[in-house]
Amino acid sequence: MTTTARTPTTTGSVPATIPWSALVTLAAIGFVVLSAETMPAGLLPLMARDLDTGEGVIGQFISVWALGTVVVTVPAITLTRGMRRKPLLLTTLTCLVIANAVTAASSDVVLSLVSRFGGGAATGVLWGMLAAYGRRISPPSRGGLALAVVSTGAPVGFALGTPLGAWLGGVADWRWSFVGLSVLGLVLLLLAVLLVPDVAGQPAGERLPLQRVFLLRGVPVVLVVIFVWMLGHNTIYTYIAPFLRDTGTGLTADLVLLVYGVCSIGGVLLTAALIDRHPRGLLWASLGGFVLAAVLLVVGHATPAVVLGAAVLWGLTFGGAAPQLQSALTIAGGAESDLANAFLPVAFNLAIAAAGLVGALLIGVSGGLVLAVSMAVLGVVALLVTVAGRATFAARG
């Protein structure tokens, strides 16, 4: 039996205006979080060669980050629900900066993997609080807009962070990509100190037990969609270089990721324009387009124009996935949106960890081209889940 969400309780004074500078800062933190997580996907061959290891091992740089998020996020958010938000934000962002700096400096694979695990742990806490933080520092009547602004960080990280990191690694050295993330993290740390207001944690008497939050109506459905869709996306995204190599098209990972990334921004804009009025139709169209992009990669993998066209459609349809699903999860969580959102990075990162392992297995057994097939199959499964749980994705005020 499921439990319905309660009406959120406002703590402290009600904000009178949208704090744009603070929301953009939170969104930029989301950009750094996502870029840091997926950066090795665009640098796979360069990192493998420099660290004298295989591409499958570098793929685990993403998986171990995801594992850190999975292991730490829910316990950390559960234990920190009563803490004031700003000190928690600054502490975890500092840990992220340190983790990226260690990755940039390390020449030891084991140390690099440890730093990646630590970075994943820090970002799990960040993901669990960013969306609800943005809503709480904004007027209640503009909570949806605040969530949309904060949620753009993740898709823009997918859109630009990884392609830019791949480009910088190609023209300079892969380590400079992680140095850049560390510097940007320091800048955002300063901006957060100056621009982001503090809010209180959740009073002890208002907190639901963890298992009851998980069973809030709609939460399990959203989490299943997140896991399956992300697994379909990230299995090929992580190993895009081996996939492209096996197509024989001569297309490079940085070019395809850039095309995908630019079009992902278009997906974010489409989501912002349609999500309040047509959330369910938007989600179905996004998943349908994602499956079509995968089919194009399967049947037209030998033609550069088809592969690039599929990358365009891939970006347009997956670019808005994070804000669409985060919005659904935040609404389903109600007053427990912080803890409900803590499940989001767990689902995402379970999928990312699985994608690193599944992708390595698939390319080891069948080569890179099979990754497009897995993308299509998992996209269809995610679409079927949204149809079965369609009430979860309807518009709600």
Score class of each variant (00 low, 15 high):
V149M: 12
V150S: 05
S151Y: 07
S151K: 09
T152N: 07
T152A: 12
G153F: 02
P155W: 04
V156R: 00
G157S: 10
F158A: 08
A159V: 12
L160Y: 08
L160F: 14
G161Y: 10
G161M: 05
T162P: 07
P163W: 11
P163L: 12
L164A: 15
G165T: 13
A166K: 07
A166M: 08
A166G: 08
L168A: 08
G169Q: 05
G170Y: 04
V171Y: 13
A172E: 04
W174H: 06
W176L: 13
W176Y: 15
F178V: 02
V179K: 02
V179W: 15
L181G: 03
L181P: 05
S182P: 06
V183Y: 09
L184G: 01
L186E: 03
L186G: 12
L188R: 05
L189F: 15
L190T: 11
L190E: 08
L190M: 11
L191W: 14
A192D: 09
V193E: 10
V193N: 12
L194N: 01
L195P: 00
V196A: 07
P197H: 07
P197Y: 09
D198K: 09
D198T: 06
G201V: 03
G201F: 07
P203D: 15
A204D: 12
A204M: 09
A204W: 03
E206K: 00
E206T: 09
R207P: 00
R207D: 08
R207K: 14
L208Y: 02
L208D: 15
P209D: 02
L210N: 01
Q211R: 14
Q211F: 14
R212S: 14
L215D: 11
R217N: 14
G218D: 08
G218T: 12
V219Y: 05
V219E: 05
P220H: 15
V221Q: 10
V224S: 08
V225I: 14
V225N: 04
I226C: 03
I226P: 02
F227P: 01
F227M: 06
W229L: 10
W229S: 15
M230C: 10
M230R: 00
L231E: 08
L231P: 09
G232T: 07
H233T: 03
N234F: 15
T235N: 06
Y237A: 07
Y237L: 03
Y237C: 06
Y239I: 02
I240D: 01
A241H: 06
A241G: 00
P242Q: 05
F243S: 05
F243I: 10
R245V: 07
R245M: 01
D246E: 04
G248N: 02
T249W: 12
L251R: 10
T252E: 08
T252G: 09
A253F: 01
D254S: 14
L255N: 09
V256A: 12
V256E: 03
V259N: 04
V259C: 08
V262S: 04
C263Y: 11
S264D: 05
S264I: 10
S264L: 14
I265P: 03
I265M: 02
